Amino acid sequence: MSAMMTVAGLVASLLISPQAATGSPPDKVIIEVVVMNGTACPPGSAAVVVAPDNTSFTVTYRRAAESADVRRNCQISLRIHSPGFTYAIAEADHRGDLVLDNGVRAVLSANYYFQGMTSQTPVTQSFTGPFADAWELLDKPDIAHLVYLPCGEERNLSSTVDLRLSPGTPDPRKNFVTLDSTVFRFAWKSCLSRISR
Rank of each mutant, 00 (worst) to 15 (best):
F57C: 03
A65D: 10
E91R: 15
E154C: 06
D171V: 09
G152R: 06
L137Q: 01
Q75M: 11
V161F: 08
A106Y: 06
V99P: 03
C191R: 03
R71K: 14
N156D: 13
F127P: 02
R164H: 03
C74G: 09
I143R: 13
G96Y: 12
N111H: 11
R194D: 15
L192R: 14
V147K: 10
D162L: 15
T58V: 15
N156A: 09
F176K: 07
S159L: 10
G103R: 09
F186L: 05
L157W: 06
T160E: 12
W188Y: 06
T160S: 13
H94A: 11
T58C: 14
F184Y: 13
S181T: 08
A90T: 02
A88I: 05
H81G: 11
N156H: 09
A92S: 11
G168M: 15
I89H: 01
L192H: 13
V183S: 08
D133H: 13
I143Q: 10
T178R: 12
D101L: 06
H94T: 03
D162M: 12
P83W: 08
F57A: 08
L137E: 05
S190H: 07
F176Y: 15
Y148P: 14
F85V: 02
F57G: 00
V70D: 03
Y113E: 04
H81C: 09
C151R: 05
R71I: 13
F127I: 06
D162Y: 09
A144E: 12
G129F: 07
M117W: 09
R155S: 07
P130S: 09
L163Q: 05
I89Y: 01
Q125M: 05
L179E: 05
V123N: 00
S166V: 05
S126F: 09
Q120K: 02
T86H: 08
H145T: 14
V161P: 02
P167K: 04
R194H: 15
R185F: 02
Q120P: 00
R72P: 00
R185M: 08
D69F: 09
L138E: 04
R155E: 04
Y113M: 03
D142W: 08
C191Q: 02
L179R: 01
Y87W: 14
F127K: 10
Q75A: 06
R164W: 00
R194T: 14
R173Q: 14
L163A: 02
Q120Y: 01
H94K: 01
F176T: 07
H145V: 07
R185S: 15
V183T: 15
C191K: 05
L108K: 03
T160Q: 13
K140H: 08
Q125E: 12
P122I: 12
L98V: 05
F127Q: 07
P172W: 15
N102W: 09
D139N: 11
L78V: 03
F85E: 04
N156Q: 08
S158P: 01
V107G: 03
N156P: 02
T128Q: 12
K174E: 14
V123T: 07
L78M: 15
R63Q: 14
N73P: 00
D171I: 10
G84D: 12
F131R: 08
P141F: 12
Y112V: 02
A110G: 04
Q120D: 08
W188R: 01
V104D: 11
F57I: 01
S109G: 07
P122G: 04
I76Q: 10
Q125N: 05
Y112Q: 03
Q75H: 14
D69H: 11
K140L: 05
L149M: 10
L137W: 09
